[in-house]
Simulated scan of single mutants.
Amino acid sequence: MQLNQLSHPQRVRLLYKTILRLHRGLPTELRALGDNYVRDEFRRHLKCNPMEAQLFMTEWARYASTITQQLGLRGKPKGEIGEHLDEKAVEMLKDDQVVQLYELMLASKGLHGDTITADDVRGK
């Protein structure tokens, strides 16, 4: 069966499982962090509108492609994992996304307990 013959839920499930499989090649700490983040994001977008779903799938497919390139065919990191965020892309994020990104950065560096809220971002 070809990818374009799959239903939307089947494509989502395939992407989700592909990403979790790719994470097996990450260092242990990053794998746990990445797996938890992916599970949370996919759960959070279960009932999003079609436009958000298309953007969601496009961005996660791009992520899977990037990880595939960085891990290579054998699933071993070929250098630095991840990529730097474009400043313009960060500026386009919603307040709650900035908070989530900040908390993800803290977790990736092993820093816990220093969290901010969307109100902190808005300066309230």
Rank of each mutant, 00 (worst) to 15 (best):
S65V: 09
T28V: 13
V98M: 11
R21E: 13
G110D: 02
I19E: 08
S108A: 14
K17H: 12
L20A: 12
T28E: 14
R31L: 01
E103F: 07
Q54L: 10
L85W: 15
Y16D: 10
L85S: 11
L93C: 11
L3S: 12
D96C: 11
Q97K: 09
A64F: 04
L55E: 10
R31S: 00
N4P: 09
K94R: 10
E80K: 11
S108F: 05
I19W: 02
E59G: 04
N49H: 08
R13K: 13
L106Q: 11
L106T: 04
K76F: 05
E83K: 15
G75I: 00
D119R: 12
N36G: 15
R44W: 03
C48Y: 08
F42E: 02
V98I: 15
L15I: 01
Q69Y: 06
Q54I: 02
E52A: 09
T115G: 11
K94Y: 05
L85T: 08
W60G: 01
Y37E: 14
L3W: 13
P77G: 00
A53C: 09
L46P: 00
L22I: 04
I116A: 13
G75T: 02
G34C: 09
I81L: 15
I81Q: 02
M57E: 06
P77D: 00
D120G: 06
P50G: 07
D96N: 14
L71I: 01
A118H: 01
E83F: 07
L26R: 00
R21F: 05
D114S: 05
R122A: 15
S7Y: 03
T66G: 02
L15D: 01
F56K: 00
A32M: 07
K94T: 08
E59C: 04
L73T: 11
L55Y: 10
K109F: 15
R122V: 11
P50V: 06
R74W: 13
L22N: 05
C48D: 14
D96P: 03
M57L: 09
N36W: 05
D40P: 00
H45P: 00
E91V: 07
G75H: 01
T28I: 05
N36R: 11
Y63V: 03
G34N: 13
W60M: 05
K88W: 05
R24K: 09
Q69K: 15
A118M: 03
I19R: 06
V38L: 10
G25C: 01
L22T: 02
Q5I: 04
K124W: 14
L85C: 08
T115Q: 12
Q69L: 10
Q100W: 11
I19T: 05
G82C: 02
E41R: 12
V38T: 10
E91C: 06
G82M: 00
T66M: 14
R21M: 12
I67E: 00
Q97M: 12
F56N: 01
D96A: 14
L104E: 05
S108K: 15
E41S: 08
E29T: 05
K47F: 08
Q2A: 15
R44P: 00
K109W: 15
R21K: 11
A89E: 09
L26Q: 00
F56M: 03
T66A: 10
A64R: 03
K124V: 14
Q70W: 03
K78E: 07
V121Y: 06
L6C: 07
T28R: 15
Q97Y: 07
A64H: 03
G110Y: 03
G113T: 07
G110N: 04
